[in-house]
Simulated assay, not measured.
Amino acid sequence: MTQATGSKAPAIDHSVQILDLLTASAYPLTLSEICEATGISPASGHRIINAMLSHQLIARDPARKKAYCIGSKIFQISSSIYSKQSLIAFFHPIAEILKNEIHKTIFLSIPVGDQAVVVSKVESSLSQAWNIFTGQTIPLQQSAAGKAILAMQSGHFRDNLTHNLQCSHTELTELQDDLQRAQRLGYAVSHGETDSEISCIAAPVLNLRNEPVAAISAAISGAHLNPQDARDYSKKLIQAARQLSARIV
């Protein structure tokens, strides 16, 4: 198994490695199997396993002696997060209509920190299968959904994010131009965010305080989406985003 990128908190790195491993495994794993797969020393593994057990992040599996599986706390956290995303239920009927209007696969993404996370999608039978999947994370500044969200964020938020980006002055200027354009037009476009042959277009979903809580996007074949096509797609996309915004209390 690939080692996680090291940080200044190796115990947390190792905990995440263990959770990733148990999530991917088809059966519960013993301490020795976990340590062998992750490269964590048995002594460290034993301490981390005991700590994770105490927090219910993992659990002893009754079907296999001295083996561990994902714990109840993970499901509790997941359920809590999912319950807060009630807009997913509202998204599907709106996305079904949009899909039939523009014949493209439709995605719903939400901002989590500095990432846009795909939380749902409605696939079109006429659209190609894209390398965009539920659970995928893309930096806000690199995706159409992320740019649509960023464009509606406060200037303070955008300044903080761009300050921490490791990019050239030219790239930063291009990003700022993209965000200003997205704010003015009500939609954002990106090219090659997951594949060099895919363009994406997205419109923000806003709450009652006019804050961005999500974005609806569509994947379109082609390395570059020309301005006229973008305008044509944007009309239906913005309408769908407004309909979803109206559902948010």
Rank of each mutant, 00 (worst) to 15 (best):
C167Q: 12
S221V: 06
I49V: 15
D195G: 06
S41Q: 09
Q85T: 04
L175N: 06
A11F: 14
A218D: 11
I74L: 07
S199I: 01
Q76M: 03
I48A: 00
K104D: 13
A219K: 02
Q85C: 05
T173L: 08
R242K: 15
G45Y: 05
T2I: 11
G146V: 00
A67F: 07
H46L: 02
L165M: 07
T38S: 01
S78A: 14
P62E: 07
R60T: 10
F90D: 12
H14L: 04
H103A: 11
T194N: 11
E36N: 12
H14T: 15
A26C: 09
Q166W: 06
S217D: 10
A89P: 03
A148T: 04
K8M: 08
G71M: 05
A223I: 09
I40K: 02
H156P: 01
E96G: 09
A145H: 13
I88L: 06
C69Q: 10
R60S: 04
S109P: 00
I49N: 08
E197D: 10
T30K: 15
N226L: 04
V118W: 03
C35Q: 01
L31A: 11
L53D: 04
P212W: 04
S83R: 03
D114M: 10
S7N: 01
D229T: 05
H46G: 00
L108H: 03
H55E: 13
K65P: 03
F133E: 11
K235L: 08
A240F: 04
N160A: 10
K8H: 11
I58D: 11
A246M: 06
S78I: 02
R231V: 12
S143F: 07
R231G: 15
E101G: 06
K104L: 14
K65N: 01
Y68L: 01
L126E: 05
E36R: 12
G222C: 10
K121Q: 08
C35L: 00
V16M: 07
A182C: 05
I88N: 00
L108D: 00
G146I: 06
A182D: 08
L98N: 07
I198K: 02
L29N: 03
Q56A: 09
Q115E: 14
D178I: 07
